[in-house]
Design a protein around this nucleic acid. Structure first.
Lengths: 155, 155
DNA sequence: CCAGGCGCTGTACAGAATGCCCAGTGGAAA
DNA sequence: TTTCCACTGGGCATTCTGTACAGCGCCTGG
């Protein structure tokens, strides 16, 4: 079910140097290649590792502004709002949260001015009653998973 | 500066099937292998692609509960709070946002009960005045980047 | 106490991909 | 026109992958 220390080390290693292959990983970890291969297969089939997609930086794509918007949704309009927001490319992520029909979404924009356009597009939809936006000034801790992996692998 | 359609298609392809190599990608895209190699190098050196780290699912690691906490910070305590939160493995992400010394952080926990422990640890720090937490019920739109890449590559 | 199952090791081999190099071509900019 | 640049298509040596197999220590159930 859970992961052990070898799994943890393997994930850490892959996170630090994604380009290394199974063979090199086995050398670094001091185990046989077949072991690394088996562990990787298991981690992927268990869903612990979803994949190795490219990690794209929105800022380098021309979208340096990030914001979080809390949306208040009209009762029963949840599904429609989801569908609507899924069509907006600048919506990178959307969560339904506890509270009064609330949602939280992550937005990006080309500039602060452009953010206005994005927000207008997001909230320009019937099911959305109100939106409050917080612009990200600094990403103090970038999305990370390694500390959690370490924690989980030490049980 | 920006990316063109070939870059966009390449990123989409890698996002869908990360395991394919440069050679296979060149076949799919109908271009020479050297071209794909050159594009990839450029995308990485430009920072558009940060890497190919493993995409780890916290739920599969035993942390199925996600929450967002808005923290109100005492004036001038920002740096200390950042340092504090960086030591908590369950804090996956931390942003400084506009507002009155506010921060927004993403948390995970083993259960709703465990979330209490995590929150206690997060807010158990002098610089934090108040915290309000929203538990994620449904991840309506999982973190995605492809729509944005498409948008960016069509300019 | 013993047999089986399981995971890891070490090895082997064919097929495939990688990193690197180079000559040729076509389009765009100077 | 000339130069520059990206892309093509080919080649080469090296390396990695996928797969297989025998051997071995460890744990567990009978």
């Amino acid at each position: 079910m859970a992961i052990d220390r070898l799994d943890g080390s393997l994930i850490e290693l892959l996170a630090e140097e994604p380009r290394i292959g199974v063979l090199e990983a086995s050398r670094r970890l001091g185990v046989a290649r077949g072991t690394v291969q088996a562990r990787l297969d298991r981690l992927q089939s268990q869903g612990v590792i979803r994949g190795f997609g490219p990690d794209v930086d929105p800022a380098a794509l021309g979208y340096p502004v990030t914001a979080f918007a809390t949306l208040e949704i009209k009762q029963g309009q949840g599904a429609d709002v989801r569908t609507h927001l899924a069509t907006v490319p600048e919506v990178l992520e959307l969560h339904t949260t506890t509270g009064h029909g609330d949602m939280l979404c992550r937005l990006v924009a080309r500039s602060n001015a452009d953010l206005q356009r994005v927000i207008d597009r997001v909230v320009g939809f019937d099911g959305i009653v109100r939106a409050s936006t917080a612009i990200v000034m600094e990403n103090a801790v970038p999305l990370r998973i390694i500390p959690l992996v370490k924690q989980a692998s030490e049980d």
